[in-house]
């Protein structure tokens, strides 16, 4: 091998490299020259056979050649990439639909509500929808035949009544979970979030036959109305936004005393009932939305759950998931039955 050979090799290599048609061809050239069995290594392997004074010169020359070829390949590689980049791809129109499905709004609402309450120590449970009269009514201070039962139009199941627990019903509220939870946990503290389907025998524009309700129950030493307010305000802030406040008005339930109706301030008009530009806020009732009922757990209910009302007090609230969700100002739903729709034109929005 002599200088002339090396020069020829270099010229050939550069000619081939600059003329390479694509990445594959370039790779083949790289292997040919720079690979394990390539030209450079072959030349290097001949160095031991050379005379001493020729070794150094040859070594340097081969190293230079190696460098030149590496540079040429790198340069050509960059050029090939730029060419690949040339052209036009329209990114403004609709792409290919990946076909995502969706989780139902009600599921999202349930998960959001669960997250909010779990952060302050609530345990989420699901109690039965088909339950005995004892849990749905009698243990909640509503004896058989009491007028208060009229408030909840109840579905009865065709099945033999239980000798102790009464008839089998579809529970009209998640409050059937209260005494069940007291029995399950045994001794306070209790912080229950029961989310389950309920049924009421009544269907019109504002009522669904079946809907999901969520029930909170807190029982401990020293629980007061201020704690009920605190938990409700906390929920309102998280669910509807900072600044949304709650309001308690007198009401009556057999299983709570005192009993309340709970309103949340309207986030649309900031609880004033009026809009910034004048005019009435159409979204709410004088600045407030009615969300549902609440109250301090009646001592009879605590006793029925095996808890001493002289030692412990508690509060409870029970609201509809669909209704509570529909009150979010971003949710513009007039007819609550839309949330029960199976029309995919609605659900796929």
């Amino acid at each position: 091998m002599n200088a002339e050979e090396i020069l020829n090799l270099k010229n050939n290599a550069i000619a081939l490299i600059t003329g390479a048609g694509g990445r594959e061809e370039l790779e083949e050239l790289r292997v040919k020259y720079l690979g394990r069995k390539g030209e450079i290594n072959r030349m290097l392997s001949e160095i031991p056979k050379m005379a001493a004074e020729e070794k150094t010169v040859a070594g340097e020359a081969i190293n230079d050649l190696k460098w030149v070829i590496e540079e040429a390949i790198a340069g050509k590689g960059g050029e090939i990439l730029e060419t690949a980049d040339a052209g036009w791809t329209d990114l403004t129109g609709p792409g290919k639909d990946p076909g995502l499905g969706s989780v139902h709004l009600v599921t999202k609402a349930i998960d959001e509500i669960t997250g909010i309450f779990e952060k302050i120590g609530f345990t989420r449970v699901r109690y039965p929808t088909v339950d005995w009269d004892w849990y749905a009514f009698e243990s909640l201070n509503m004896p058989k035949g009491h007028p208060a039962r009229d408030e909840w139009e109840t579905f009865f199941v065709e099945a033999p009544a239980h000798p102790k627990l009464g008839k089998m019903v579809l529970t009209p509220h998640t409050s059937n979970g209260q005494v069940r939870e007291m029995e399950r946990v045994g001794k306070p503290p209790i912080r229950m979030l029961n989310i389950a389907p309920c049924f009421r025998r009544q269907q019109d524009v504002t009522h669904l036959v079946s809907f999901i309700q969520f029930e909170g129950l807190v029982v401990d030493r020293g629980i007061s109305i201020a704690h009920l307010k605190g938990v409700i305000d906390y929920f309102a802030g998280k669910f509807y936004g900072q600044g949304v406040k709650s309001r308690l008005r007198p009401f009556h339930f057999q299983f709570t005393e005192p009993s309340f109706e709970v309103d949340f301030s309207c986030s649309n008009c900031k609880g004033t009932g009026k809009l910034d530009g004048g005019g009435r806020c159409r979204f709410c009732k004088s600045g407030w939305h009615e969300v549902g009922g609440a109250g301090m757990v009646h001592p009879t209910v605590l006793k029925n759950g095996g808890i001493d009302p002289k030692e412990y007090t508690g509060f409870a609230f029970g609201w509809g998931v669909e209704r509570t969700y529909a009150m979010k100002p971003e949710v513009k739903i007039d007819d609550i039955r839309l949330l029960n729709s199976t029309d995919l034109r609605v659900l796929k929005q």
Partner: peptide, 20 residues
């Protein structure tokens, strides 16, 4: 009712997961 304070209960957190 409007005059009551708003407090989150401070007692022990129940660890009562029913395993559902």
């Amino acid at each position: 009712y409007g005059k009551f304070e708003s407090l989150i209960p401070e007692g022990r957190i129940p660890l009562t997961d029913p395993g559902q």
